[in-house]
Structure formats: C-alpha cells, structure tokens
C-alpha cells in the first residue's frame, strides 16, 4: 500500500514558565491511501495537537519545532502560507467536534458551501453549484433542499453531516475527524459515523479518527494508534489491539469501557477505584 501521509518525528511544543510542554514528543505515524486509522488517547495526550499540526493550525505560542509531515511526499511544513491554504480542504480536510458550530449562523448552507468551493478555485455556473451541492448533501444522507436552511434550523447531527459534505467537496486524500460525534447522541453518532465511512470509501480518502471511545474505534478503524503524554505507545491492526493489547495503558482504556456484559472487568475496575478512594481517607 502507498502511504499518503507520513508523519516523521513530529515535535510540537508549548512554552510555559516552567519550560516547554512537549505536547507531541517525537511522533511518527504512517497513513496509507484509503486507510481508516484510529488515534486514541485521553485529554491532553496530544492527539488533537497532531491533527492541528497536520493542518498547520497550531495556535501560538504553540510551535512545531521538529519533524516532517509528508503528504504524498511533499513536506507540508515547507509550504508557503498560500500553498498551505490551498492544500487545506483540497488535500487534507478536517471535521472537528465543534465543526457544526463553525457554520455561520446568519448565512444559509448554500452560500457557506459555495464559499468553500470558490476559495479553492472551483468556478461553476449557478446551476453547476446547485448540482454539486445537491450531490454532496445527498452523499451524506441529507436532502438537497437543506441548502436553503440556516444552521439553527438543522439538528446537531445534520449540521455535522453538512460539515462532512463540505470536507469531501474537493475529494481530499486525507480527512481528519477529531471527535466528530462527541457532542451527539448515540443514535445520531452512528448515523454520522456510517455516513463518514461511506463517503470516505466512495472518494477513496484516508481517515484519521481521533477519539477516546474504544467502541467507536472498534467499529470504524482498521488500525489503532494509542497516544499518551505526547507519545504513541502502540500502533496495531484493530483486531490485534483488541485481542492482544501490548501496552498496559491500552488495556486500561479498554477495561474502563462499560459494556453489556456482567463478567467484564468494568465493575472490578470501579471497585479498585473505590478502594483507592478509601485508601486516600485511610492515609489521613
């Protein structure tokens, strides 16, 4: 398989008074064309920082201080700002948890989607845009008539699907989905994830799904990388990681997931947590 995205020794630091925080500390990761990679870790593990680094959207004072991010062999870190602007959406698109809130509340969906296309040099006739938008919305399971609505007239799940429609509008090679369904209910989550799955398959894009839910990873990803404190602890094929997690932290992540079985470790983990709670009081 060809690698479409190659992250080599990436270092992202955030300066603080007590010295730099190494949010991403020497991470290397390869994404193959059309592959679905899960990147899992808890808050502060650095998983979203990797996503922002690939988009070159790290906010100062945060800074990429080392490494390479190769998209089809081209190092994104060497591109001019203008070249990077053109690369976003066209080559690498991102859908975040708050993507639905990035829609402008006073502009109808039509204008927002057309703006995205125009900003990347897609010039079509009025009916051409209409047709393109119709196709994109249909692809994510929405009616073409949605173009005439304002964001507040859509539910969270529908807004997130509009964002996915926008993300695929230029057929990017890579889609980064950073907790795209964390703000959604479980039923809508499935609809949105299955939509994402279908469209990435249709346009042949590779996806990095960032999250903290091992269940979602099991259902979506072909390969899972586990992150903690700026490092990748483990990077394995999905069946492998569930059947035989190598790192104790991976095991911990899985055991803290409740399920519909009585004989899993979950309640044991809770009891252990309760013992730790009791130990704190006993130590006083």
């Amino acid at each position: 398989m060809n690698s479409v995205l190659e992250i080599i020794d990436l270092e992202v630091h955030f300066p603080t008074r007590r010295g730099p925080v190494r949010a991403v500390d020497g991470v290397s990761l390869t994404l193959h064309a059309g592959e679905r990679l899960g990147l899992i870790g808890e808050s502060g593990s650095g998983k979203s920082t990797i996503a922002l680094a690939v988009m070159r959207m790290i906010k100062p004072p945060g800074k990429i201080v080392g490494g390479q991010i190769l998209l089809d062999g081209v190092d994104l870190l060497t591109l001019s700002d203008e070249a990077m602007r053109r690369t976003r959406l066209a080559e690498v698109a991102m859908v975040t948890q708050g993507a639905m809130n990035s829609l402008n509340p006073v502009i109808k969906i039509r204008s927002q989607m057309i703006d995205g296309l125009k900003a990347h040099g897609v010039e079509l006739s009025k009916s051409g845009y209409e047709e393109k938008l119709g196709e994109l919305l249909t692809a994510v399971g929405l009616e073409p008539g949605v173009v005439d609505l304002y964001p507040h007239e859509l539910s969270g799940g529908m807004k997130q699907r509009v964002c996915i429609a926008t993300a695929i509008s230029l057929k990017p090679k890579v889609i980064i989905a950073d907790e795209p369904t964390s703000a959604l209910d479980v039923v809508v989550q499935r609809q949105v994830m299955q939509t994402l799955r279908r469209v990435q398959d249709e346009i042949g894009a590779a996806v990095i799904l960032i999250g903290h839910d091992m269940g979602l990873m099991a259902q979506f990803a072909q390969r899972v990388a586990v992150m903690r404190r700026g490092h990748i602890l483990e990077d394995s094929e999905v069946h492998q990681i569930f059947a035989n997690p190598k790192d104790p932290y991976t095991r911990e992540l899985m055991e803290s997931l409740p399920s519909f079985d009585r004989d899993t470790r979950f309640m044991q983990v809770i009891e252990e947590a309760a013992e730790e709670v009791a130990a704190v009081a006993a130590a006083q």
Partner: peptide
C-alpha cells in the same frame, strides 16, 4: 447504536 468494543 452503541459501538461495541469488538471489531467483529
């Protein structure tokens, strides 16, 4: 709808 932590 709940994603089960089992790829199978």
């Amino acid at each position: 709808s709940i994603p089960q932590a089992d790829p199978d």
